[in-house]
Simulated assay, not measured.
Amino acid sequence: MDEHQNGGSFNTEEADNIVKECIDSVVGNNDYNQNLVNKWTSAIVERCLTQLVKLGKQSKFIVTCALMQKTGAGLHTANSCYWDTAMDGSSTVRWESRTMYCVVSVFAIATA
Results as ranks from 00 to 15, higher is better:
1 M>R: 14
1 M>H: 15
2 D>Y: 10
3 E>P: 11
4 H>A: 04
6 N>G: 11
6 N>P: 04
7 G>A: 01
7 G>M: 08
8 G>F: 06
10 F>Y: 09
10 F>M: 03
11 N>Y: 06
11 N>P: 00
14 E>S: 10
15 A>G: 03
17 N>A: 09
19 V>C: 07
21 E>P: 00
21 E>S: 09
22 C>T: 04
25 S>N: 10
26 V>C: 05
26 V>G: 04
28 G>L: 07
28 G>E: 03
30 N>E: 14
31 D>F: 13
31 D>I: 08
33 N>L: 14
36 L>P: 00
37 V>F: 02
38 N>K: 05
38 N>E: 11
39 K>W: 05
40 W>M: 12
40 W>G: 03
41 T>H: 10
42 S>G: 07
45 V>E: 02
45 V>R: 12
45 V>Q: 01
48 C>P: 01
48 C>L: 02
49 L>Q: 11
49 L>N: 15
49 L>F: 09
51 Q>M: 12
52 L>A: 03
53 V>H: 05
53 V>C: 02
53 V>L: 05
54 K>W: 09
55 L>K: 14
56 G>Q: 11
57 K>M: 07
58 Q>N: 15
58 Q>S: 14
61 F>Y: 15
62 I>F: 09
63 V>T: 03
66 A>D: 14
67 L>C: 15
68 M>A: 06
69 Q>L: 08
69 Q>D: 05
70 K>M: 03
72 G>I: 05
72 G>D: 06
73 A>L: 15
74 G>M: 05
76 H>M: 13
76 H>V: 08
77 T>K: 15
78 A>R: 10
78 A>K: 13
79 N>E: 06
81 C>Q: 06
82 Y>I: 11
82 Y>E: 06
82 Y>A: 00
83 W>C: 03
85 T>K: 11
85 T>Y: 07
90 S>P: 03
92 T>W: 12
93 V>I: 07
93 V>W: 02
95 W>V: 00
95 W>T: 00
96 E>K: 14
97 S>A: 06
98 R>F: 04
98 R>P: 05
99 T>L: 09
101 Y>S: 02
101 Y>L: 15
102 C>N: 02
103 V>K: 15
105 S>P: 10
105 S>K: 12
108 A>C: 04
108 A>H: 09
109 I>V: 14
110 A>Q: 12
112 A>Q: 13
